[in-house]
Structures are given as C-alpha cells and as structure tokens.
Amino acid sequence: MKPIDIARLLLVIGAALIVLASCTGSSLPTDADPQNDTTQAVETVPQNDTTQPVETAPQTSSSVPATTVPPDEAVQPIASVRDAIGAPTGTEVRLFGKAVFTDGVMWLCGSILQSGIPSCGEGIEIVGIGVDAFGETQTFLAGTDIWSVEPITVVGVIHDGLVVAISSQPPE
C-alpha cells in the first residue's frame, strides 16, 4: 500500500478550510491544526441548514431591501457523484455511495464495475475521512483495496476536483 501523500493532504485541507470559512462566514476553527491526523472523520463542522430561510448579506443601498430566500429555493448540495465530478471549487456536496481506499487514495463511487475485483465506474476522490468511516469493510488484493461493504454518506465541499469531507455517516 502506498503511503498517503501528507503534503498534498495538508495543502488540500488548508485550502478547504479557507473555502469553508468563506462559505460559512466564520473564522477558521481554532483547533484546525494541520498537523492533526486528517484521515480521521471530522464531525463537528457546522452544515448549512436548508430547512431554515437563508438571509442574504445586508445591502449597502437602502433602496434595495434585504431579501429572504425560501427554503425550497435555497441551493441544495449536489447529491450525485456524477454531478460532483467536475463541479467547481466551493460546491457543497452530500454524496452517497460505496467508498474504497486504494493506492493511498480514498474514493466515493457513484457506480461500481462488477468484475471479480470491484472497481469504481465513476468515482470522486475524498480527503478528510479514513477507513474508520466505512463501517464494515471488505478487503481485496492482499489488503491494498479496502471497500465499505455498504454505502456511506459524505458531506463536504469540492476543492480542485476533490471532495473535502466535513462529515460522514457510516451505513445504518
């Protein structure tokens, strides 16, 4: 098994935190230490609550009143791996699928090719979670491919074609 490229991970995580800060309007979490083990799932980053009305930023001109976007018009996170592939940086996603850790890279698969050893038909790379987020796992190729037995849910943000995971849910 190839080692994880720590420098790349740190770069992506750092960029993602900036993206998150800009998305949430908050400062960076005070415990955001790039030396932390980034393969562990992050579970406490707040998510947008789309069930509540979303208020726009205050307007500088008094002639343009602040508006409220009804919940059903709020932007929903992308839910399809296919749509997430190629989505611009900053796009929020909530993806559901089987995950695989192979060659030091984590993938969430929108489809799986069913040869003797499964492989992603359409997949997107994920950083920020580890195989501990998989729930029950299945191993192939002498342990180099670790699959989640059941699909998992990953909430995150696109950054340079990757999903930076904010939280994940193992199979119920």
């Binding site: 699928g97 489809s111 090719l113 699909p151």
Partner: peptide, 14 residues
C-alpha cells in the same frame, strides 16, 4: 452486456 451497478439506495444494475 453487464457493466456494473450504481451505488444509490437501490443498487441499480446497468
């Protein structure tokens, strides 16, 4: 010719 399955809730084959 069978290719695989989508991994949504229903695991559709294609």
């Amino acid at each position: 010719i069978h290719t695989g399955v989508s991994t949504g809730p229903n695991f559709w084959g294609s």
